[in-house]
Design a protein around this nucleic acid. Structure first.
Lengths: 346, 346
DNA sequence: CTGTTAGCGCGTTCAA
DNA sequence: TTGAACGCGCTAACAG
C-alpha cells in the first residue's frame, strides 16, 4: 500500500521579457536608436521617438538592469550589513536607509552579521561579487579597512572603526552619556549604576566613559556600580536584579542602551521597587519601543532615522563621485525626559 | 571674502576584478576550461585543473554574478516586500527569511511598502527588471494575481490574497482568536472587548470573527465592545482609554495583535486600573516585545520565525522547480500564558 | 539624426 | 579532454 500524494509544480508560462531588439524590430529602427530614447542620450527625431515609445508600450518592455550592469559596472544596489535586524534599534535605521535609497533609485540588500567577523567577511565577498555599488555597515570589527574602501564605497554607521578616510555616522555617545549622568544627578540620585554594553563595541565604551568622567568629577565614582549587560535585554534584567540584591542604596541607573534600560525596568518592578520613586532609569538611543512601554522611558535620544538617512546620502555621494564636505558625522543627541526619572526639583 | 571648504573626493584606485579571461591566460588554457573547473562541469584533466585553480587563487578571482546572470536568467536574489520593517512583527520574519535564503545561496532585497498598492507595484516592477528570482510578500492588496505569478515565483506571507495557485503561509488566525477568547472566558472574564485590526486586512477580520463566534455561542456577544485600532499602538492606547471611560464593566481585552495589546496595557495603567486584577489582556502574534515588557504579555503566539523560514523554503522550491507537497500552509498557534491574564481558577 | 559593430564576463554548443 | 565562437541584453564609439 503506497500513499500517493499530489505534488504541485511551479510552471511559469511566461515567454520572457521583451528585449531591446524586439522593440527595435517592431519600431523599424536600430537598437541604438531605442537605447537613445531609453536613456535620453543623443539626438533622435521626434517622430522616430514616438514610434519607439509606441513599440515599447506595446511590448510592455522594460530594459534589463542586469544587461545594463554588465557594461556600466553599476547595479544600483547597495548592501546593508547590520548585526541583527531583530534588535529594535536597527529596523529604524534600515527603514531610513531604504527610504532614501529608494529615492535615489537604489535597491538595498539586507544582511545580518550577528556581529561576527566571519559572516561580515562572507557577506562582503558576496556583495562584491554581485557588483554591489556600495555598502553601509554597522560593525565593531576590523573587516573594513582602507584597502576594502579603495575597492568599494563604504560608510560605517553607529558602530564603526578607526579610519580617517572611511566616512562614518554616529551619535554623540560620550556627550550623551555625560548628559544622562548629569541629569540623574540633578534629579537627586546619589548612587548611580551603569549597565554597560559590550567592551568590544566602541560606542559602549564611550558611553561608559562619559558616565565615569561625570561621576569622577563629582567625586562620587564607584567602579562596583558598573556592570556588563552586553546590550542584551535579558542579561540586563538578570544583572540588574542581582545588583539590586547586593546593593540597596542604588537610586539611579544609566543603561548603555534602551534595550538594557527596559530589561532593568523589569528587574526593578520584579523587585517590588517603584520607578521612578525608588529608582530612576535612563536609557540611550531613543528607540520607538521606549514610548510604547509603561512607564515611558526617559532616554538620551539619537536621531536614529536621520543617522540612517545621512549615511545613505553619503553613500550615494561616494558612489556618484560627488565630493563630501566632511567625512565624519557626529550627530547631536538629546535628553528626552519621560516617566522613568524623577522630576527636577526646581 | 569667500569661505573655502575642503571637499573630499572618493577615489577608488581599484583596477577592477580579474576576469575569466585573465585567469585563462595566466593558466595557459581557454576560458571554456576555466569555466569548466569553475562549475565542475564536463571533463577536465586533473593537471590543468590544478593550473587553473592556482591562477584563480593567484589573481584572487571570483566570477561575476552579473555576467553569469545574463545568460542564466538567474540572479540568486529574491525580493522581500513588507509593509514596514519598523513594525516589530516583521523583523523576525525578515530575519528568518534572510537566514534561510543565506543557506541556499540567495540574497534578499528589502522593500517597505507601507501597505500601499502603488508602492508594491513599483517595487514589483523594479524587482522584475532586476531579474529577481522570486518574491515573498506580505500584503493585503491585489497586486498579486495569477498573471504575475505565472511570470515570477511568489509566496505570500501572513497577509495574503485569495488564490488557489499562489502559495501562502499564515498562522491560524480564526482558531487563535477563538482560543484567546475562550481562555479569557475561562479565567472568569465577563465583558470582553476586542481591539480590531484594519478591516482591509484579512487576518484582522478572521481574528475578529473568531472572537465573535465564541461570544455568540456563549450568548454574550456585544457589538459595542469591538473597536477599531488598526494594528496601531497609539490608536490602541487612545481607543482603549475611551472605551474604559464609557464602559467600566470591561474586565478583559482581546487585542488583534500584540502591538495593540501593549498599547491597551498603557491605557489601562494610565487609567489607574491593575492588570490582570481589574482587566486581563491578551494579544496575538507572540512578538519578542511581549516578554520584554512588564507585566509580560499573555498572547496567542504564531511561530513567526518558522513562518518566515517556511515561506523562504517554499520560494526556493518554486524557483528551483522542485514540486511542492501543498500550496497553502496554515501553522498552529499557541496560547502563551504570561502575566497580563488572571490564573485559571481550578 | 541613425545604423553597425564591438565589447561587458560568462556559459555553452560544436568541433577537434 | 580542450578550444573557438556565439549569444545573453544593453551601451558606446564610430561611421554615415
Amino acid at each position: 500500500m503506497c500513499n500517493r500524494l499530489q505534488l504541485i509544480f511551479y510552471k511559469g508560462w511566461f515567454s520572457g521579457m521583451a528585449t531591446i531588439r524586439s522593440v527595435a524590430k517592431l519600431a523599424g529602427v536600430s537598437v541604438a536608436t531605442v537605447s537613445r530614447v531609453l536613456n535620453q542620450r543623443g539626438y533622435v527625431h521626434i517622430e522616430t521617438e514616438k514610434k519607439v515609445l509606441k513599440a515599447i508600450k506595446e511590448l510592455n518592455y522594460t530594459p534589463s538592469i542586469v544587461a545594463r550592469s554588465l557594461n556600466n559596472k553599476k547595479t544600483n544596489t547597495i548592501g546593508l550589513i547590520l548585526p541583527d535586524i531583530t534588535n529594535p534599534f536597527f529596523p529604524e535605521l534600515a527603514r531610513a536607509i531604504e527610504d532614501v535609497m529608494q529615492i535615489y533609485g537604489y535597491t538595498v540588500v539586507l544582511c545580518n552579521s550577528d556581529g561576527s567577523v566571519e559572516k561580515e567577511q562572507e557577506y562582503i565577498d558576496i556583495l562584491k561579487q554581485k557588483y554591489i555599488d556600495g555598502i553601509i555597515i554597522s560593525t565593531s570589527n576590523f573587516v573594513i579597512d582602507q584597502e576594502l574602501f579603495s575597492q568599494i564605497p563604504i560608510v560605517t554607521l553607529d558602530r564603526h572603526v578607526t579610519s580617517e578616510k572611511i566616512p562614518s555616522v554616529e551619535g554623540g555617545n560620550y556627550e550623551g552619556a555625560k548628559l544622562a549622568t548629569e541629569f540623574l544627578l540633578s534629579t537627586g540620585c546619589k548612587h548611580i549604576a551603569h549597565l554597560q554594553g559590550p567592551e568590544t563595541i566602541r560606542n559602549a565604551r564611550e558611553r561608559r566613559d562619559g558616565y565615569i568622567d561625570v561621576l569622577k568629577a563629582k567625586g562620587c565614582f564607584d567602579g562596583n556600580l558598573i556592570v556588563a549587560a552586553d546590550y542584551d535585554i535579558k542579561k540586563a534584567t538578570k544583572v540588574t536584579f542581582e545588583l539590586l540584591e547586593r546593593d540597596s542604596s542604588i537610586d539611579g541607573i544609566f543603561a548603555g542602551n534602551d534595550l538594557m534600560a527596559i530589561g532593568a525596568l523589569k528587574a526593578i518592578q520584579m523587585h517590588g521597587l517603584r520607578v521612578p520613586d525608588d529608582i530612576s532609569v535612563i536609557g540611550f538611543d531613543g528607540i520607538a519601543l521606549g514610548e510604547m512601554i509603561y512607564p515611558e522611558l526617559t532616554t538620551i535620544a539619537q536621531p536614529i532615522y536621520d543617522m540612517g538617512a545621512i549615511a545613505a546620502r553619503i553613500l550615494v555621494k561616494l558612489i556618484e563621485e560627488v565630493p563630501l564636505e566632511s567625512t565624519h558625522h557626529k550627530l547631536d543627541v538629546q535628553l528626552v525626559e519621560r516617566r522613568t526619572t524623577r522630576r527636577l526639583s526646581t
